[in-house]
Amino acid sequence: MTGSLVSGASNFRDVGGLPAGDGTTRSGVLFRSGNLVQVDDTGIADLRALGIRRIIDLRDEAELANDPSRLDDLPVEVQHEPLFLGSVASFFERDVSLEELYSSIVDDSADRVVAVVRGILTAQPVLVHCTVGKDRTGVTIGVALAAAGVDREAVIADYARTEQLLPVARTERVRAAIRALHPDNVHADELATRSPARAMRALLDRLDREFGSPAGYLRAHGMTDAELERLREVLVA
């Protein structure tokens, strides 16, 4: 698993090759990334070569309007599943932690988390993305991988990789803007620029406590045992 696979798209990567018990996740099946706004001609060719059939976009309507994806004539189905309830700005205004943000996603948008996982089952190769590919993407991909039986530490490590894959210039620009707007915030820098293993571990541990497992969380919100078995068949070889 290397860096970005698509020119102009940050944090674009394949989640293949992760250990899952006696197996590993399949390559070329499930991808994750930040937005597709700055995809260039080479990036369009990259997406075509990957054979992406379905794109699950986790951004809200305002984000879609302000930063539309560049897909040209690619033969893809786009599924929109906005995961944030409230504006991104509101999270900084309330100075929420990553743990609080992730809890709000699984609590308040459980039906959409399930819809994302079902979207992964609908057609492959499939890309899941949000704006940066860190939080909304991190939560849904983390839950899907864990529910498919991927080793817990591998799920956490895949989430944590994002911090190293975000463009340095973008990170510094965002940090400067945050310091100017919210100089006294405790969590703002981490919320915008970091993906610490601690945050994903806390989320998965919480799903264990409350639902028995990440698969139990999906089951409690409508997924069937057959769908969960199919998820493992799709993602793990």
Rank of each mutant, 00 (worst) to 15 (best):
G28V: 09
L64C: 08
V106T: 06
T140L: 12
T137H: 13
I44Y: 03
S104R: 12
S104A: 15
R26Q: 07
G119S: 11
G51E: 03
I44T: 03
P75H: 14
L101Q: 08
S109M: 14
T137Q: 09
N66F: 05
A49F: 01
R112I: 10
I44A: 08
V117C: 00
D111F: 07
L50K: 10
L85F: 05
Q79K: 02
L47F: 02
S103T: 05
T122Y: 12
Q38T: 08
F31K: 00
L74A: 11
V78E: 07
D95E: 13
T140F: 13
L58N: 06
D46P: 09
E93D: 15
P82R: 09
S33I: 10
R70L: 05
D40F: 14
G119E: 01
K134R: 14
R112N: 14
E81D: 05
Q124L: 08
V96S: 04
N66G: 09
L98M: 09
D73F: 06
V139A: 00
R26N: 04
A45C: 10
I120K: 06
I44P: 01
T137P: 01
E61A: 12
E99N: 11
L83W: 09
R59A: 01
F91W: 14
L121E: 00
D151V: 11
S87Q: 11
G51S: 12
E61W: 12
G142F: 06
P82G: 10
L58A: 01
R59I: 08
S69F: 02
D72V: 00
D151S: 04
A148M: 05
S27Y: 01
G34P: 03
R136S: 02
D67Q: 15
L36F: 08
T24V: 15
F31Q: 06
E77P: 03
S87I: 10
V88P: 00
A65R: 15
H80N: 15
R70Q: 06
V139D: 02
Q79V: 15
D95M: 09
V116D: 04
A65N: 15
D46C: 06
R54H: 10
D72H: 05
P125I: 06
L50V: 04
L101S: 07
R53W: 02
A147V: 13
R53P: 04
I120A: 04
L101N: 00
R136Q: 07
T122A: 15
R26D: 02
T137E: 03
A146N: 05
L98W: 06
T42S: 13
G119Y: 01
V128P: 02
V113L: 12
H129Y: 08
A147C: 13
A89L: 14
L47Q: 03
T25R: 07
R152S: 11
R70C: 03
